[in-house]
Design a protein around this nucleic acid. Structure first.
Lengths: 342, 342
DNA sequence: TTGTATGCGTTATCAG
DNA sequence: CTGATAACGCATACAA
C-alpha cells in the first residue's frame, strides 16, 4: 500500500500539516521535528500524490505538447528538448502525436488532465485547423506555438524566409538557374517564399512547373512524398539542375528517386534540404541544409509558456520570437556539373 | 472558470450524483433527465476532472513509457504505436526519455503521478540498472518491458538471436567469410550471439579483432559510434569484406566511414544493420537489415500491461513473448566484390 | 429513479 | 512552532 501523508504524520508523531510544511520546504518547523518527519518519509517511501495536490492548488504542473508525429527526427528532438527544459522547472510533459487517427482522443486527454499549458507545433490532422486552438483559448489555457499558427498565439519560430533565401542563393551561386522546389502545406509557406525571393533577386523567372506543393497529410511520409514527386518531375522531363526540398526528408526521398533514375547527386542535380536532422550529415551524399536552433527554440517556448502560466493576470502580450538559422553546406550541393537536360 | 460537476447539476436542476451517472454511462437515469444533463454538459463545456476521479478510484488511467531517447526512430515509432494502442483503451501515455541528465527527475514524476503501469524499453542512463525496476516492483506497479530486462518482468521482444543468425548467414552466402561486428552494450547480447552462431555453423572461426562492443552510453549516438569504430577498424588494417552493425544507425555510421576511406558499399564491403528504421530503405545504398514487427510488439506489451493492471489479484504470471523478425535484403549486402585487403 | 452524505490525499486557514 | 479542520471535484453507498 502506498504511504500517504497521514501515515507519515502518524509515524513521526506529528500532524499532517507539519508533514506538509516539511515536504514543501516551508521553513517554520523546528529542526528536531523536521528530522523526525524526514526520517518517516524515507522509511515509508512517501511520495506526495500530485493528483491530490493538483486539486487544491489548481495547478497540475503538467504541460501538453502537440506534434504531428515522433518518427520525424525534427519533432522528436523538439520533444526531447522541451521535456528536458520543462522537467528542470518542475513540470511534466505529456506528448500528443496528433497525426494519428486517435488525435482527438489524445488531445482531449489534455483537457481532462487539466494541463497548465500547451505547446503546439505543426498541424493537427483530421480536424478543422483552428478547432483546438479555439478550445484552448476559450478555456484560458496558456498556449504557445512553434512555427506560426495563429496570430493571437505567442510563437517561436525560425526565420524560414531569409534562411531559405540564403540557401537558394547558395544554389544559384553554384551555377544553378533551373531550380526545382518540393514542399507541402505542412512545411509552411515561408520556405517557398524564400525560394521565390532568391530567384527574384537573381532575376531568374520562376518556372512554375518546377514548383511542387503537396496539399495533403504527407506529414507521415515526407520522404515518400519527396521520392514520388521527384519521380514525377523526371517523368515529365522537366529541366532542372538543382532541387530545394522543403525539409531534409523530402530531399532524401528526392535524392533516392534521382539516383534510381540514373542521376547523380550533386553531379547531375544539386540538392538542398531544411532542418538539419542528424541524417542530413550522415546521408550519402551528405546534405546541404539549414540548421534550426532547436535547443534554443525549445528553451524559448518553454520560458514563454511558463511565464504565461505563472502570471496569468499580467498583460501577457502575444509575442513573436524569431530565431535566425544557419545554412550548412555539405556535399549534396557543391560540385561542378553538366546540368540535366532530358 | 472551468465547469465542475456541481455547475452541471445546478444547470440541469439535478443532483451531482445524477450527473455522475450520466457521465459514467450508468444506466439508471430517466431518458428525460439524461437529456437535460447532457444539454447542460454541452452548454458548460464540462469535462470531468481526472485528478479528482483518480483520487477515489485509485486509478489514474495513465501509463509511463521509459525509453532512452526519442531521436532514434526505433523508439520514436515504438512510442507512437504504444500511445495509439493505449489511447484506444482509455489510457494516457507519459513518455520519459531516460537518456538525458534529467532521467531521474522524469522517472520520479511517474511515481508522483501514480501511473497505473510502466513500460520499459532499453537501458536507463546514469543510474544503477535495476534501481528503478526494484522501485516499481516494490510499489507493486505493473511493469512490462520490451526487450529482455529482468527475469521477473513480463517482456515482449524480438528474436534477436535467430534473426541475426539468419542475417549473417545471408552475408556468408554472399561469399563473405571475414565479417566484422559492431555492437554495443545497449544493443543487447542476442545479436552478437546470432552472429557468432552463424559463423560457428559455417565453421568460420571468429576473429575477435573484428568484434567491437562499445560499453558506454553511445545510445545517444549510435551512428557516431558506428562511424568511429569503423574508422578504427580501417586504421588498424583489419581484413574484412562485410560488416554486421547491431542496428541500422551503427551500420549507417559505418558506411559513412567506409565511403570516406574510399571503400564502396557493397562493392568492397557488404553491410547489414538491424531494426529496419525508415531510413534503412532510404539510405543510399539501401540497407539490408532485420525488420522488427513494432506494431505487433506494441500491441502485445500494451495488452499484457493492461491485463496486469486490470486484474491485479489474478495469478499474473511472468510471461516472455517472443516475436519472429524478418530479414530484409537490400542493396548494401548484395553485390559481387573483390574483398578488402589493406 | 434521484438525492444526500462521505471520503480520497493534499494544502491552507486558523487557533493554540 | 504545531495541530485541527475545511476545502478541492468527483464517485458511490445509502436513503428516499
Amino acid at each position: 500500500m502506498k504511504a500517504t501523508i497521514k501515515d507519515v504524520a502518524r509515524e513521526a508523531k506529528v500532524s499532517t500539516a507539519t508533514v506538509s510544511f516539511v515536504v514543501n520546504g516551508i521553513d517554520k518547523v523546528k529542526k528536531n521535528t523536521k528530522e523526525r518527519v524526514l526520517l518517516a518519509i524515507q522509511k515509508l517511501n512517501y511520495v506526495p500524490d500530485q493528483a491530490a495536490r493538483a486539486m487544491i492548488k489548481k495547478k497540475t504542473k503538467t504541460v501538453g505538447l502537440i506534434v504531428p508525429l515522433l518518427t520525424n527526427e525534427y519533432w522528436a528532438e523538439l520533444a526531447e528538448q522541451i521535456q528536458e527544459e520543462l522537467i528542470l522547472r518542475g513540470y511534466t510533459l505529456m506528448i500528443c502525436t496528433a497525426g494519428m487517427k486517435s488525435a482527438e482522443l489524445t488531445i482531449n486527454s489534455l483537457l481532462e488532465r487539466n494541463v497548465d499549458g500547451v505547446i503546439l507545433s505543426g498541424r493537427i490532422a483530421s480536424v478543422p485547423d483552428d478547432h483546438y486552438i479555439q478550445m484552448f483559448m476559450e478555456r484560458r489555457i496558456p498556449l504557445v506555438s512553434i512555427g506560426q499558427i495563429h496570430k493571437e498565439v505567442t510563437s517561436v519560430w525560425g526565420d524560414n524566409l531569409n534562411s531559405s533565401r540564403e540557401l537558394v542563393e547558395h544554389l544559384i551561386q553554384q551555377g544553378n538557374t533551373k531550380i526545382a522546389y518540393i514542399g507541402s502545406i505542412s512545411t509552411g509557406i515561408g520556405r517557398e517564399l524564400g525560394y521565390r525571393n532568391a530567384l527574384a533577386i537573381a532575376e531568374i523567372p520562376v518556372d512554375e512547373t518546377l514548383v511542387r506543393n503537396g496539399k495533403l497529410e504527407d506529414v507521415h511520409n515526407f520522404s515518400q512524398y519527396g521520392y514520388h514527386t521527384m519521380k514525377q518531375l523526371v517523368a515529365e522531363k522537366c529541366e532542372f539542375t538543382a532541387l530545394f526540398g522543403a525539409n531534409d526528408l523530402i530531399a532524401i526521398g528526392a535524392i533516392k528517386a534521382l539516383q534510381e533514375s540514373g542521376l547523380r547527386v550533386p553531379h547531375d542535380v544539386a540538392v538542398a534540404g531544411f532542418d538539419d536532422i542528424a541524417m542530413a550529415a550522415l546521408y550519402s551524399p551528405s546534405i546541404t541544409t539549414v540548421k534550426q536552433p532547436i535547443g534554443e527554440m525549445a528553451g524559448s517556448v518553454v520560458a514563454a509558456l511558463i511565464e504565461q502560466i505563472e502570471q496569468p493576470d499580467g498583460p501577457s502580450m502575444v509575442r513573436k520570437i524569431r530565431f535566425p538559422m544557419t545554412v550548412v553546406v555539405r556535399e549534396s550541393s557543391i560540385s561542378p556539373k553538366g546540368g540535366y537536360k532530358n
